[in-house]
Design a protein around this nucleic acid. Structure first.
Lengths: 133, 133
DNA sequence: ATGAATGCAAAAACTTTGCATGACG
DNA sequence: CGTCATGCAAAGTTTTTGCATTCAT
């Protein structure tokens, strides 16, 4: 269960951390903003501050439990890290998000950074699409 | 000059708009945050409020004069729209922005959208990098 | 017990908005 | 002249931080 995951990450088993991890794991929802998580906690009657939500999600990110995406409207979303990296495709009409992964693109990105004298630390690739007509 | 561009965009010829467009056009700097533009105005002794800078840049965006990029540290940069597409690489230490363009990546993106039954409308690719050590 | 974690409120950083004044056409 | 644009300050958003208190081990 959640406790072992937290222990493995070197995090103390606290109420907020267990609760937040449980929420992330027991939902179909994949992408959570801090606010989303906070509201879900409220609904469950949990008394956790928004500051703690941010702190815990950031710790989870450091621990590799979640991945943080900074979407372009300037707010972050978090999703459980399944170990497989992927990028996102957003349907401009429906708002639907599709995940995809392409080794070739990943490879080229590293090459490009390298050519410019940099190490690639992270990247963000989002395709904005519409259903074929 | 600037006036005709503004007229073509249906924007009244006002002092702040002319000044800001002039700054963008007469500089080697490509990427401007609102704050950057504001500081440049101050240096020129212009008395323009930061709110106006944001308003004008947003109008320029609507008019297709500039492109807005939302970087993931939660602030926007604007650049003159030259019509040629390119992607960005951001140095996480210095904040420096490098432009690049890779046909192969562009091609693959179209293929991916296509495979999923979509048309690619737009995309955003940002590489976050650090100088090689 | 003791150091880490939490909640609260306040601060920070960036951007938008309300409103009275001033400028453009 | 009638709008539209501007400046200022105040409010909004999202996220972080300081600090006293509470909790896990």
């Amino acid at each position: 269960m959640e406790n072992s995951q937290l222990k493995k990450a070197g995090l103390k088993i606290t109420h907020p951390r267990v609760k937040i991890l449980t929420i992330l794991e027991n939902s179909d929802k994949r992408h959570w903003s801090a606010e989303d998580v906070f509201k879900e906690l409220m609904l469950s009657g949990e008394d956790v501050g928004i500051a703690t939500v941010y702190r815990v999600l950031t710790q989870f990110e450091s621990a590799g439990i979640v991945t943080r995406h900074n979407f372009s409207d300037g707010h972050s979303v978090f999703e459980l890290d399944h170990g497989e990296h992927h990028d996102h495709m957003v349907d401009l009409d429906s708002g639907e998000v599709v995940e995809f992964m392409n080794d070739e693109i990943e490879k080229i990105q590293h090459a490009i950074a390298d050519e410019h004298g940099y190490d690639l630390v992270d990247h963000s690739l989002v395709l904005y699409v519409k259903k074929k007509s």
